[in-house]
Amino acid sequence: MAWNEPGNKGKDPWGNRGGNDQGPPDLDQVFRKLSGRFGGGGGGGVSTGIVLGVLALAAITWFLSGIYKIEEAERGVVLRFGEFYELREPGLHWKATFVDQVYPVNINNIRELPASGMMLTMDENVVAVEMKVQYRVVDPRAYLFNVTNPDESLNEAMDSALRYVIGHTIMDDILTTGREQVRQDTREELEGIIEPYGLGIQVMDVNLLPARPPEEVKDAFDDAISAQEDEERFVREAEAYAREIEPRARGQVQRMEQEANAYRDRVTLEAEGEVARFVQLLPQYQAAPDVTRDRLYLETMEKVYGSTSKVMVDTEGNGSMFYLPLDKIVGQGAGQAPQRTAPPQMNDSSSLPSNSFNNRRNVRNDSVRQGRN
């Protein structure tokens, strides 16, 4: 049976007894009772001192909650009612709680983002490439609000740039000599992709890690790389040999050239000396041709016989040859004292008369004169 049905003697939840239904209590009465308990009297409202105290405490709490600090490596992006307001420098600052929002962004930290994958080269080979990009934030506002996720956008841009460069490069260059060019091209392509989006970041460096072919063909590519390294080594050895031989050859050429010049100068001077001697001899020959001719003949024979150790002399056409062993004579003269011999007789066929040479000279001069006439 419900509490308010006729005949129910139960308790009324509103405190009515005896069935007298007076309804729920008045709220004014409830507040009066509470104010009486806390105010110490039966005043007609909430104590003004308590209200002011509560408000002051709330204001202090609100003020203290707005104090914050920006670190040295950070910049604070302030939003007021959800709209960009200003950038805050490092130090202690205050913001209006529930009005301003501050997002600190580190602008000095160098961040790193990796990218990797199996990519197709220009010569239709598959290669595993890994690359890391280093960057930092230069514009905190653009970094936070220009794109939804700048790090993810940078990752996708780097993957696109890397695949584009790898797709326009042959595999040998990627694995060996063209790595530096691939790195530079990837960085330029990446910067060109992210520039229109205004990510607020600056690419510091792009590092290309060692690329490798698929495991199925790794041995064949290792052999190819070894062959290329051997080729480079042989080229360096050849260049070193050339650098060693070339100065030596240049020195030999210079020495031979100097010797040739010296020989030319010597021959020229000797020829000039001979010409000068004959020029000086010409007046003497013109003055006394026979005497000059005989003197030249004698001087020539003296030079000829002076350089030989054996002399063969014709004994006036009698079919015998006189042999004068000058080498033995010289040797005897050096080893022992010369022996005195008697002067040769005129009728001795083994001796050379003193006038025989003069006779032959006269006959020769007569024949020369007859031939000239």
Results as ranks from 00 to 15, higher is better:
270 E>S: 05
290 D>Y: 15
267 V>W: 10
307 S>G: 03
305 Y>D: 00
253 V>G: 11
233 R>K: 00
281 L>N: 07
245 I>F: 08
262 A>I: 04
270 E>Y: 06
238 A>M: 11
268 T>S: 13
243 R>S: 13
309 S>Q: 06
271 A>I: 00
310 K>R: 13
248 R>M: 03
259 E>C: 00
244 E>G: 07
248 R>V: 06
238 A>T: 14
274 E>L: 12
266 R>L: 09
268 T>G: 14
319 G>Y: 08
303 K>M: 09
311 V>A: 07
230 D>V: 07
283 P>A: 06
298 L>Q: 13
298 L>T: 12
311 V>M: 05
262 A>S: 08
279 V>L: 09
249 A>V: 12
252 Q>L: 11
280 Q>S: 10
313 V>H: 07
282 L>D: 15
318 N>D: 13
261 N>C: 03
237 E>W: 05
260 A>V: 09
319 G>W: 05
292 T>A: 10
248 R>S: 01
274 E>Q: 02
310 K>P: 07
248 R>W: 01
305 Y>I: 01
294 D>H: 11
284 Q>K: 12
303 K>L: 10
261 N>V: 10
303 K>I: 08
271 A>E: 08
244 E>I: 04
265 D>H: 10
271 A>Q: 02
297 Y>N: 13
253 V>Q: 07
280 Q>Y: 04
272 E>Y: 07
288 A>L: 03
274 E>W: 07
306 G>W: 00
258 Q>L: 08
296 L>V: 09
292 T>Y: 06
245 I>C: 01
270 E>V: 01
303 K>Y: 11
305 Y>C: 09
293 R>H: 08
235 V>K: 08
238 A>N: 14
315 T>N: 14
254 Q>K: 01
252 Q>P: 13
311 V>C: 06
289 P>W: 13
227 A>V: 14
274 E>V: 11
262 A>M: 01
258 Q>G: 05
316 E>T: 10
313 V>E: 04
313 V>G: 09
282 L>P: 13
287 A>R: 00
284 Q>N: 15
